[in-house]
């Protein structure tokens, strides 16, 4: 479904941000990216969505019709049209603060379809009533239908996060990317958001970055752990305390630690 092949990103200064990242995400999966802050989780997702450039590797994903989309390659930029086509099939659930604050909630949801409507229509007419009622259905699914005409800037953190998910649902993508969707929320709201995402993942796979191992073990089907831009673990979500220690406390710098982790993943 999604295939990340040997993705590397080095800055001109020589700093390595991503180091030969390769993994697959298949239908029905809810994959969690774990790793300390600065490990490269956001950068991986930005690369998949074609929002940054890389120095090596490529990202390919295929739709149900068997069509392949390449969002990013090292050989420079994909053409604007191809990128647009690929992007509209990836639903990015950004942190909620990335919604347009002065627009009504409903408009923020409808923005999800921009990749599918003609740019001229955007300027001359805007969205249709049909699209608006579909957006209402997406809002209803996340329990925010009553907020459709509220200004987005006046919502609370949890509500905003639900709207961001509604935008992604309304987009009807083949794959969801979620960068720390629950990090700024209280435990109760975080739990509710995870419960929303779990059934979504059954329709179309989700790749998300999280900082809550407990929740990840409960809801996700697989964990990929990053450390300083490299994958150090790719396997089942039920991690032991020791493994978590290695992921977060940086002991993974020792090569034998990485081997231990990988061995544990395989067993």
């Amino acid at each position: 479904m999604l295939e990340v092949k040997g993705l590397s990103k080095r800055l001109p200064t020589g700093k390595t941000i991503l180091n030969d990242i390769s993994f697959r995400v298949d239908k029905g999966e809810f994959v969690a990216l774990l790793g300390a802050s600065g490990a490269g989780k956001s950068m991986t997702m930005r690369a998949i969505a074609g929002l940054t450039s890389v120095t090596a590797g490529e990202v390919v994903f295929s739709g149900e019709s068997g069509k392949c989309y390449t969002t990013i390659t090292a050989s420079g930029k994909t053409s604007g049209k191809d990128l647009r086509r690929a992007r509209r099939n990836i639903g990015v659930i950004f942190q909620g603060s990335n919604l347009v604050k002065r627009l009504p909630v409903l408009d923020n949801v409808m923005i999800g379809r921009l990749g599918r409507i003609h740019p001229l229509r955007s300027w001359l007419y805007g969205f249709t009533d049909q699209e608006a009622s579909e957006a209402m259905a997406a809002l209803e699914r996340v329990g925010m239908a009553g907020f459709a005409s509220r200004r987005t800037g006046s919502l609370s953190g949890g509500e905003v996060q639900r709207v961001a998910i509604a935008r992604a649902i309304f987009q009807r993508p083949l794959l969801y990317l979620a960068d720390e969707p629950v990090s700024s929320l209280d435990p109760k709201n975080a739990e509710a958001i995870m419960q929303l995402m779990q059934p979504l993942a059954r329709e179309h796979p989700i790749l998300g970055a999280f900082h809550q191992p407990g929740m990840v073990m409960h809801y996700c089907t697989r964990v990929i752990a990053l450390h300083k831009g490299s994958i150090i673990y790719n396997g089942a979500p039920n991690l032991s305390a020791k493994q978590l220690d290695e992921i977060y406390c940086g002991q993974a710098d020792r090569p034998e630690a990485t081997q231990e982790l990988t061995a544990a993943a395989e067993s």
């Binding site: 929002l51 086509r85 992007r87 099939n89 950004f94 379809r113 921009l114």
Partner: peptide, 11 residues
Amino acid sequence: RVLDAVAAVGA
């Protein structure tokens, strides 16, 4: 990030 998020849906 607001503008990136809109570009990311293929706008």
